[in-house]
Amino acid sequence: MIEVKDLVKRYGETTAVDHLSFTVEPGRITGFLGPNGAGKSTTMRLILGLDRPTSGRALIDGKPYRELPDPLRNVGALLEARAVHPGRTAFNHLLYLAQTQGVPKSRVSEVLDLVGLSAVAKKRTKGFSLGMGQRLGIAAALLGDPRLLILDEPVNGLDPEGIVWIRTLLKQLASEGRTIFVSSHLMNEMAVTADHVVVIGRGRLIADTPMEEFIARHAEQVVLVRSPQAEVLTEALRASGAQVRAQPDGALLVNKVEAATIGELAASKGIVLHELSPQRGSLEEAFMEMTRADVEFHGPAEHPPAMATWDAVPGSAAQSQAAAAQGAPQSGGAS
């Protein structure tokens, strides 16, 4: 369990973490969300004792990180991908970590195997891609069979296969009762991975709630509809008070009406439907709205400043299809 209690970190004039309090419980994945620059990495560094807080405390199972008898055996951490000497081999990088607290050498080869880096174990990390660097960082985090994992942006630089791999791994680890605390600036990624979510903006707590509740409360209901009679349907929907946006591929995105209502409306007008699927796509939009005031750098008003932070345009068909391809449950499904 991680407890963050009234944590403050100031760098000169800047307040990176501002009276932050939350708890990360074992047995589930807790997502740590916020725009870039919100203070996520700083908070993680404070938890790990790399930085000293200006005030407040961060405790791991009731103790400051520095007082854990054998930290590597309790906590696995992944910070920036490149906290590695480029001239050292992957094997030796893990070996010097293992040696700090009696983790046997054989374990080094095993975790390298687990993350799929055995073939490059004896290669210097200089030539590693971003994704390989992330895998090495994850191997380091798993070295001591930790009860608790703290991962900063673990999917950064991973290919789609890698993303699914880490998502599955984290879910498995959580189901074994471990504590998983994972940061991301990608709302969609969190929506399919995390059970609980802690949202911060400008170092302050914005939300600390179960993911389902967060989605239910903040996500606009959007339904994707395809029909050969799109124009007639659009008119009928607008007449019933719905918002309708036509997509370039002919699909309609409908707000403010439930899928069932749309189906009934179409039936009553004799309109043929080819597709009718509730989306979770606009969750990012809701989240951006929520954190907009807290985004560090404000752009011109007509361009939402958080836009560049999120990797996909919210609500776009391409995005919802990509999410579906990655096995994202539709709205209402268990995550």
């Binding site: 055996r73 009696g102 195997d113 009860r147 074994e176």
Partner: peptide, 24 residues
């Protein structure tokens, strides 16, 4: 919590020896 032997995610790995106390 000892998960080393029962773990499925890390199940392919040999169980670690018991922690020898304080890393020093």
């Amino acid at each position: 919590m000892t998960t080393a032997t029962t773990s499925s995610a890390l199940g392919g790995l040999t169980a670690l020896p018991p922690a020898s106390g304080r890393a020093g």
